[in-house]
Design a protein around this nucleic acid. Sequence first.
DNA 1: ATAAAGATCATT
DNA 2: ATGATCTTTATG
Length: 201
Amino acid sequence: MNRTLPREFYLRDDVTRIARELLGKTLVTDFRGSLTAGRIVETEAYCGVNDRACHANNGRRTKRNEVMYGAGGYAYVYLCYGLHHLFNVVTNVSGRADAVLVRAVEPLDGLAAMLRRRRMSASAPRLTAGPATLTMALGITTRHNGSDLLASRIRVEERGFTVADGDILATPRVGVAYAGDDAVRPWRFRLKGNPWTSPAA
DNA sequence: ATAAAGATCATT
DNA sequence: ATGATCTTTATG
């Protein structure tokens, strides 16, 4: 019953819709025989060259963000603040630099491995409630930049968890105050009331 | 060549 | 509130 999302899911020209539809899907990593997974409960949409918060804004095209300009369905992973690996799903067709940042997941599978990677011992609130904590828990780093989400050990699955429009809270994105008018666009999406969303106000 | 700024987190 | 930590990017 688990189904990896097809390429067409990512190729569409509507990144905020895709960001909403990713809520409730399951992000899975399967590295070295260690399978870990979490349900996506928070995302942010980054809308290509016209979005001042996006790494591709104003047509910026560099070694770091090159994968954003490729076809949808690949991972864009970059290092933030020198310490944190942030995971994005590239969307839209080749030439359109859209992406969805995954900001939080709810732990589902491989709890022991996630705890180990996070160097947490017993109970773990906050285990995956944040864009950098979830990558650490799932073992995702910049070495996975450019990974094909349909062919690699990182994938997104439909596991039959349904989300209604009314379950989604849309607010401005986090940490993009520098982005002028685009800073206030309601492109951060959360499952209402889910305890695993990120702590950011 | 140099400098400054980050799509954050854990701790104080 | 603040420090950690370092790559990427812009600028001279």
